[in-house]
Amino acid sequence: MKCRIILWMYSVISVLALLLLLSRENIFVLLALVLGVLLLGHREIWSLIRYRRLPVIDERVRDNLSNAMRLTGILFFITSIVLLLLLRFNVFKGVPVELIVSGEFVMVGIVYLIGYYYYDRVRPNLGKRAARWLKICLITAGLSLSTVALGIVLHNLISYWFDFEEAFFFILALLAAPAVFAVSMLVSLVIYIKGLFSPAGEG
């Protein structure tokens, strides 16, 4: 009964949102919404289709959900500030705002999923050594990303102040830091996927 009510509510709200967004021709927001619903509710939708009931939300799932939500909230806050700053300085000239906002929502949704599966599957399956490497790689990736921004600013400032083409921060920002970022993200991805598909979680 409860399952049927939820299914009905889901359907009615989806159809209303669909009609509203179609009438306003907000295709990007519509796509983001549909994708978001599918991404966030994939477990519930799958369980409703296959077992005709909602999955149990026990204490472990609740902990994982709240951890993933916290991570997503922090990211949403940071990306919103960055996007507002970029929009303020007209960086996205000609790009529809709906597209930018939709992109942000989709990205946040994907991060939520990655975060949820990290707490749900990856973290319990990782050994101490792999967990330490994952942490190091993620910190390195974050630092290298900030180095890109910092390098660009410093390169421009030094070039402007001393009236010559500064090379060190240029190479650092456009070559070294992106390379470090790519490598650390790749290693993180490998560790994550290894943890996600580790047989230990399947029992």
């Binding site: 149990v56 026990d58 204490e59 472990r60 799932v61 319990p124 979680g201 399947e202 029992g203």
Partner: peptide
């Protein structure tokens, strides 16, 4: 117990510390 099967798997493998209630 009212939990997911995965929770039982992680508990049996000692990869999850349950609450006192669970």
């Amino acid at each position: 117990v009212g939990v997911r099967r995965e929770t039982i798997i992680f508990l049996e493998k000692g990869k999850y510390n349950p609450s006192l209630k669970l």
